[in-house]
């Protein structure tokens, strides 16, 4: 899963989708994942990054990452190419 190219992400977690005009905010963890997605990291890598960055068990990391990705998809911020 990738973030659409034209989505703007600011450093303080503000996101703008020029296609729909919607804006969003993310928390720190959300921003962390978005940055990795923008860097074209794979989901497996992001999962590992999350566990390295925070004190986190695989179960929680996996559940939360999946949840977050499904939210991004729901907000039409991702592409599947």
């Amino acid at each position: 899963m990738k973030i659409r190219k034209n989505i703007a992400i600011s450093e303080n977690g503000f996101i703008f989708n020029p296609m729909t005009g919607d804006s969003f905010s993310v928390n720190e963890t959300g921003a962390f994942i978005l940055q990795k997605l923008k860097d074209d990291e794979s989901e497996e890598t992001i999962l590992q990054n999350l566990m390295d960055e925070y004190d986190l068990d695989t179960y929680t990391a996996e559940r939360d990452l999946n949840d977050f990705l499904s939210m991004l998809k729901g907000h039409q911020l991702t592409t599947n190419e």
Binding site: I15, F24, S25, V26, T29, G30, D55, M71
Partner: peptide, 11 residues
């Protein structure tokens, strides 16, 4: 850092 589940909120 302390962990908090990632969220995205539409404004």
């Amino acid at each position: 850092p302390t962990y908090e589940s990632p969220i995205i909120t539409k404004l």
